[in-house]
């Protein structure tokens, strides 16, 4: 079975120029393939280049060198508006600090990516309600973020990430601000999205235990990939498949 390569990175370099002699290279030529339906984790200590990699993966930033294809689309030469559109349609962000719009209700927060995607109003509310139901937040759809607990906020944020049915969900430390129990609930939602809907999920974390739950873990150190392996029972499945 040929698996669809949803992300292909070749020789991604990111450097910052702090005046000509002081070039600071953060990523030193990253090669990365992610297949459709994969649940991938990226781990690394702080300063390893995780965030920079995530920004490039999420089309928030451009690499200095190298090629990046997202859903077979070459990302070089895409202008700012094009990047906005790619973020809108292809990527669903889940942040550590939730990043919900404080004055808007849960429903409106979920509907926001659809607003920027040009989805008609009635369709937006309908789908937002559906997504809130998926994360079991229907009862809170008219509450503002400050009336929600951390776990609830993160569930709303996951629903928002799903709004435009993106190619990948990019979750940056999604449980970092939550206690173990609610963190568990949030992880369960990711597993469900992965298993039931076949979503491609990239989880960025420094929690080795959580990384262990995913299919594959990429380890970053000082701007390079030092480890790329299948985890636990997934390893077996992968062996079966390749046979």
């Amino acid at each position: 079975m040929m698996r669809n390569k949803i992300i292909e990175m070749r020789g991604i370099v990111k450097s910052y120029y702090l005046g000509t002699p002081n070039e600071l290279e953060i990523l030193h030529g990253i090669d990365l393939d992610v297949y459709e339906g994969e649940f991938l984790s990226i781990v690394g200590a702080s300063g390893s280049g995780k965030s920079t990699l995530m920004n490039i993966l999420g089309a928030l930033d451009r690499p200095t060198k190298g090629h990046y294809y997202l859903d077979h689309l070459p990302m070089e030469n895409v202008r700012d508006d094009g990047l906005s559109q790619i973020r809108n349609k292809k990527i669903g962000f889940v942040f550590q600090t939730f990043n919900l719009i404080p004055r808007s209700t849960a429903l409106k927060n979920v509907a926001l990516p659809m607003l920027y995607g040009g989805v008609p109003r009635s369709e937006r509310s309908r789908r937002a309600a559906e997504l809130l139901q998926l994360v079991e937040m229907s009862g809170r759809s008219h509450h503002r973020p400050n009336e929600l607990s951390g776990g609830q906020k993160q569930r709303v944020a996951i629903a928002r990430a799903m709004a435009n049915d993106p190619a990948i969900i990019l979750a940056d430390e999604p449980t970092g601000a939550l206690d173990t129990h609610t963190g568990r609930l949030v992880m369960d939602i990711f597993h469900r999205l992965h298993q039931e809907q076949g979503k491609t999920i990239i989880l960025i974390t420094h929690n080795a235990e959580l990384a262990e739950e995913t299919e594959r873990t990429i380890r970053l150190r000082d701007g390079s990939i030092v480890d790329n392996r299948m985890n636990g029972h997934y390893q077996l499945e992968a062996c079966h498949e390749s046979v």
Binding site: G58, L60, D80, D81, S84, Q85, R87, N88, K89, F93, N99, L100, I101, P102, L112, P113, Y116, G117, R160, N164
Partner: peptide
Amino acid sequence: KEIGIRKALGARNSA
């Protein structure tokens, strides 16, 4: 921060 969120969610500069 809100502007950053909106941009991450796909708001164009013009929006």
